[in-house]
Amino acid sequence: MDSTNFIMRFFEWLMTFEPKALILSASAIGAGFAMIAGIGPGIGQGYAAGKGAEAVSRNQKTQRKSIFVMLLGAAVAETSGILALVVALILIFGNPLVDIEGNTLVLMASAIGAGISMIAGMGPGIGQGYAAGKGTEAVGKRPILQSQIVRTMLVGQAVAQTSGIFALVISLLMLFGNPLIGLEGTEIILMASALGAGLAMIAGIGPGIGQGYAAGKGAEAVGKRPKFQAQITRTMLLGQAVAQTTGIYALVIALVLLFANPLLRL
């Protein structure tokens, strides 16, 4: 027993591998993490499909319109899954970190962090799926209002995507414009900052679900009172902006960790 400290022994064990092998294996882990986001669209689209079936059972004549709205909404809910897939594919096929000269541990942490960040995609997936379901339900009840309902649903869904897009921004920053790699500092802090920035973005799950709920209720409300569409949409957007708050906190913390890390100066 040369060292009883498990973490120290783990790092010593890591250092027995080549740097390139370490970065590649970290990319594999990151790609796996990114795909966890798939939980969200799965749940959301399932909900939308359920609402679609319900709408058709209630009124068979609306089948075509209900299915159209369901597919449209479900396709939007797929976005965060596709973005996660893209980050995973970049990590596997076009990894920019492999060619960068820099501290191996920091590069490893960046690859894993970029993957973890994408987990946030779960939220928008669930939320947008809920909105798609509510939109389908509303169109099933009053197919005449299809265009108004779909418009409110799409705007709400687009806003619900925001936290997933923040996660993508952080993820791409860590892969392509990582400021931590060139920094001087204790390597363990740099490494932990990259992981921390990724972890912070997971908060995006919350705003994604919440804003999706707002979008769904907005679509439902427009389906009941199309006259007040402007007011409904405005109230929905205001509430969604407030629901975005914690996601913006997460983005700020992640950006601070990457660009203006106070921990390095301590």
Binding site: A158, T162, F166
Partner: peptide
């Protein structure tokens, strides 16, 4: 929040 709007708008399309 106001500054985050153009970022998410631009990245939504780009992404």
């Amino acid at each position: 929040g106001e500054l985050a709007n153009p970022i998410s708008l631009g990245f939504r399309l780009f992404g």
